[in-house]
Design a binder for these strands. Structure first.
Lengths: 201, 201
DNA sequence: TCACTTAGGTACCGAACGGTGCAGAACGCT
DNA sequence: AGCGTTCTGCACCGTTCGGTACCTAAGTGA
């Protein structure tokens, strides 16, 4: 023991683990957690089930990794938007980002965190709960940003940060469903404009 | 032939078909189409698989009947709202109805038509498409109602009925997701109030 | 009573599900 | 070369999936 050698031992992995995860993410995105079978996942990843289990553990952990990648990639807009200078700009950037991500020129429509496991059987309860937390966290971060905006005088003093955050999140979820329904980015951007009409001065 | 006798022949059905359908609807509502297994469905319906197949055909047709019942029952608000006198009242009634239906005091949270099959495997493509049509139809009916409102001078002449209808539908979908996320009717009603702030005079 | 019709229960079907055991293949190290 | 280690491919595990064959139960009509 005590040997901290990091040299790679044994047979090297025969596939690009990052690319495989990216492809798995897209399958989960399109099919949801339960709708994505191991056969389809590994087929898209270009590896066998054995390799997948060796590299990721099991289906649920593969999903968790894919969700992590989704948050850092396609859904990064949710975090980036928080850096906008005003609350209005934050909300607008958040919703425009949601539109862009849910209607990619190629790839699945909608939002992984919404269609992943809105409703599911017993066995995927853990994944369902994970996604509930994920969505709620996004709302909390938005709420904190709006609270700061009130403190900074950027939002009127009587504005309710939690309420505004929930409103924006609701629009975001609705956009995800509309995107899955077939609406394109232009139509969704119009909806965003309509939603912003009532934004506090 | 020609015998139009309606007398019931053979062994009478041993269960209330209406009640069984109601219970199946609730299981689909909570679990989604794929997440609801025949075992859970028939268990909740209080009948065996054989009886279910004899009475409803198969799982997909059971879902179609359940969806029909959902539209006539819990989701009747979507049609009733159209009868309100003004466009604003229609939108408000629609969204309040969505809040009430997606947060029942007992029974599953969320909306059957949203969590039914947002994302799914190949085999339930037909159900997925059915729900896409269902949701789009609701939007079209709302759009027609708002178009009438413009004609009647109830909405400003430069208002875009389609855009408004899509906005309201988006809010409705978002509310369904928020309800599934655990938000209660009071919080959702606040969100509705916020959404209505930008409604055209 | 007896044929006819329909519903219910059991036991089963083939397929697909997520997940593994195992033998060999491919590497670094000595 | 030989060893330890890790990855891969095949075959297979038990379970659950939606769906059905078949026999019996329970009614009507004659």
């Amino acid at each position: 023991m005590g040997n901290s050698r990091k040299a790679v031992m044994g047979r090297p992995r025969g596939f690009d683990i990052d690319q495989a995860l990216e492809r798995a993410m897209r399958v989960f995105w399109a099919r949801g957690y339960e709708g994505a079978s191991l056969a389809e996942l590994t087929g898209a990843m270009g590896i066998t089930k054995t390799s997948m289990y060796a590299a990721f553990g099991n289906k649920e952990q593969l999903f968790r990794k894919a969700l992590q990648r989704y948050g850092a990639g396609p859904a990064a807009y949710a975090t980036c938007a928080l850096e906008e200078p005003t609350a209005r700009a934050v909300a607008l950037a958040f919703l425009r980002g949601a539109v862009r991500t849910t209607t990619p020129p190629e790839g699945p429509s909608g939002c992984l965190t919404v269609q992943g496991a809105l409703a599911a059987g017993d066995e995927s309860q853990a994944v369902h709960d994970l996604l509930v937390d994920w969505r709620n966290d996004a709302g909390v971060r938005l709420e904190e940003r709006f609270r700061r905006a009130v403190d900074e005088g950027d939002l009127p003093r009587d504005a309710d940060p939690r309420r505004l955050a929930r409103f924006v999140m609701t629009m975001g979820f609705g956009i995800a469903v509309q995107a899955a329904n077939g609406l394109g980015p232009a139509e969704l951007d119009e909806i965003v404009d309509t939603a912003m009409l009532g934004w506090p001065a």
